[in-house]
């Protein structure tokens, strides 16, 4: 099939950027979306023109590198699917596709479709961990964890940190990301000890990085490739209120 693409091109953070038109020809329905872009890039490269820069790595939907807004939707039209796992069989011959980067104040554009998401890592660095030393820990079965708690922790831990939730949110909020990390550790006895402090420092870091707040649009949940639920945001709020209320 043949497709018309409008792709965001921006040479650097200072550049204004614009949508440029390209054509993708002879695209097989078995290709992934990124393989379709590979074809376009190969052609541009052979012509000596600059290929479209985009982040990608594992191409298995797990590393969270790929980050494109396709026809207005982060990761494109397929539910619970990263761009790298989106296949061209979901498009039709002659379609026009708009491709843009994640857009949020906390994600400055580096080039074309590549944005700087290190703000998410700084939320983790603020306290998204259990302060355990290497070595000197108890046997893995010493502390039992109810299966339902472990499963809920895992539901939250599935977050791949791609930032689609931020890109989808009208407030550019990282609440779903932060809530997933907070819930994952708060559900486990190992993470419980520092839970009150953790939720405060991570929330503060989130605001400091320029992410907005949550006003219950739930766009984040609908674009999340791992199906992270907004109920975790309720959990984050509860943890936060509890920690504030418990403060001496």
């Amino acid at each position: 099939m043949d497709l018309f693409l409008y792709v965001w091109r921006q040479s650097g953070p200072e550049d204004k950027g614009s949508l440029e038109q390209y054509q993708a020809r002879d695209i097989s329905p078995d290709m992934s979306f990124l393989e379709m872009l590979d074809e376009v890039n190969e052609e541009l490269t052979r012509e000596g023109r600059e290929p479209i820069a985009f982040d990608h790595d594992c191409r298995e939907g797990i590393c969270g590198s790929c980050s494109q807004v396709i026809n207005g939707i982060p990761h494109g039209p397929q539910e619970k699917t990263t761009v790298c796992q989106l296949h061209m069989r979901h498009f039709r011959d002659g379609d026009t596709i708009y491709i843009e980067p994640w857009r949020a104040r906390a994600f400055p554009v580096i080039k074309d479709l590549i944005v700087d998401r290190s703000s998410l890592d700084r939320i983790i660095q603020a306290g998204g961990y259990v302060s355990v030393h290497t070595g000197g820990v108890p046997d893995a079965n010493a502390v039992l964890i109810p299966k339902t708690d472990a499963e809920k922790a895992m539901d939250a831990a599935e977050c791949i940190g791609c930032g689609a939730c931020v890109a989808a949110c009208p407030n550019g909020s990282a609440m779903l990301f932060t809530a997933a990390k907070v819930t994952h550790l708060a559900m486990l006895p190992q993470g419980r000890v520092e839970a009150a402090r953790r939720v405060c420092v991570m929330t503060e870091a989130m605001l400091r990085e320029g992410f907005g707040n949550c006003s219950n649009h739930y766009e984040c949940q609908s674009v999340c490739p791992k199906g992270i639920k907004v109920s975790f945001i309720a959990k984050l709020n509860r943890e936060y209120l509890k920690s504030v209320a418990d403060k001496p």
């Binding site: 961990y129 820990v137 472990a150 994952h184």
Partner: peptide, 13 residues
């Protein structure tokens, strides 16, 4: 395994 559990890795139970 001990280390990872202590870090909060949610292994299957």
């Amino acid at each position: 395994i001990d280390q990872c559990v202590a870090q909060g890795v949610p292994f299957a139970r």
